[in-house]
Design a binder for these strands. Sequence first.
RNA 1: CGGGGCAUGGCGCAGUUUGGUAGCGCGUCCGCUUUGGGAGCGGAAGGUCGCAGGUUCAAAUCCUGUUGCCCCGACCA
Length: 588
Amino acid sequence: MALHMSSLFLRTLREDPADAEVPSHKLLVRAGYVRRVSPGIYAWLPLGLRVLRNVERIVRQEMDAIGAQELVFPALLPREPYEATNRWTDYGDNLFRLKDRKGGDYLLGPTHEELFTLTVKDLFSSYKDLPVSLYQIQTKYRDEARPRAGVLRGREFVMKDSYSFDIDAAGLEKSYQAHRDAYVRIFDRLGFDYVIVQAMSGAMGGSKSEEFLATAEVGEDTYVRCASCGYAANVEAVRVPAPDPVPFADAPAAHVEDTPDTPTIETLVDHLNERFPREDRAWTAADTLKNVVVMLVHPDGTREPLAIGVPGDREVDEKRLEAQVSPAEVEPFEATDFDANPALAKGYIGPGALGLDGTAHIRYLLDPRVAEGTRWVTGANQPGHHVIDLAAGRDFTADGTIEAAEVRAGDPCPACDSVLQSARGIEMGHVFQLGTKYAEALGLKVLDEKGKLVTVTMGSYGVGVSRAVAAVVEGNHDEAGICWPRELAPADVHIVAAGKDEQVLAAAEQVAVDLEDRGLSCIVDDRRGVSPGVKFKDSELIGVPTIVVVGKGLTRGVVEIKDRRSGLRREVPVGSAAAEVLAEVGRA
RNA sequence: CGGGGCAUGGCGCAGUUUGGUAGCGCGUCCGCUUUGGGAGCGGAAGGUCGCAGGUUCAAAUCCUGUUGCCCCGACCA
């Protein structure tokens, strides 16, 4: 049965809602797909629900196609399983918590590794049962610090999450690849541009992880990509290529110089150029070695100072650093910490004092760019003094390297000779090799063929289903409204009855009946007393891909078929309208 | 949690500086006209101006407190 605009539970808005900023948010509200109920919590109106269900259908089809089995867990969960994996604590304020009448602790599930793991443990106990992949499409809850952009980032949202269970790493790799392939098919069908980027496995203890990002200016994730070789990575995961070692046999010896009042890189470079000018070129910040000290706080509460050496023209990227040192957290090195480490001369810290073997006994990690044989200007560990021509490997060594320096557009690509570009994206999917973290914590083991207990190895895979609705709109709209890809549109055809005559309404209705009979879903704008202009505007705002206009052409026996996206229109005889539309929709 | 902004009929906004009968556009309802690009005319309904307290003859407007929301940053499908 076609949807009729005269009775549809829908009110389109002429103006953008005041609280909306990004295009998808404005359009989804204006076109009557969603309504805000509370910050980050949205109601899906009839048209919106249809789109959401279409996304779910695509995801479900592709998951079923790789043999994953659908089930559904409750969103309301007891505390215990999350206690076992420490996530009751680790999730912190992001977890919605509640109590039942007896005072028992519950939570609204933010993701379901624990439940899947426990249920597999409950039912399976042999390697013969594996591999198995399970998934659900379910409403998740996260008490986001700052929900934003409508359904793009809500506190309640629909996610498809799946989990694979394998006996060994080779099996996990296969399950992972199957999911990754399924995700490629899902996102191809959803119809937005996306990139697959390498991501950090980080705290989760896994070994491999990739994110699917919809390319969008409004995205919250920054990633880099290489135009020539296709390399793409989340900023956290970028590996800096280490330069080849430089021979330092004939390099000048390091020498300490007076550099008064030069506590910052900028003042130091100015001073160098004034007092110690180079013959070949001017000194730049990239010639200096900046040593930053931070305080790591380990999960058990112990604190450990860490020194990081990066070229002076780069900042330490906090996100990258945290990804590297995870699960430890990073805190600033406070004045009291300097007091406790008198070997550190604030503003003039140099490698001499650093390292576990150094006078300050602080672990010292270097940016990969500080390769053997490279020469640097750096702190001499006494106020007002720096060392020039300090050669890495000859004059100092560190305890290792670390990927913590900021990544910039124009940096060399780690995979080829080209350079990286920076871009923004919306995280739409994540595939992730978890390994044994959850299986171990929850005791998921099976007997192998030799009768020995082995811990199961897992993968976890997510798709933001409700988020996808917004992401699709971000990538598929124009000035007038939304342009849905066919598979997602709330209907196949939008029929506009443009005219007041009864024949127009009757003819529009007949076209709708013909199309519905042939398996297409229709929206019919049968509102009386509404001018054609309003109906045209609404049809473009709502964004169904094919629009059929039944109006003044009827006296000549024709109706108009219009493509929403291109705006192209053509007239066809009213009698063959249904067949023509079917051809247009590609289901003839 | 830090910074900025906003709160006035269903929606979008003005009015607040300088206290004096709460206004505009859209939408909604009724009537007539109109019908291929958000129609015209006439009529109508609808607001204790976020909340609480205070100043005053008088508060949307001034003072104090409070709550909520939006945006920008640290976290995530």
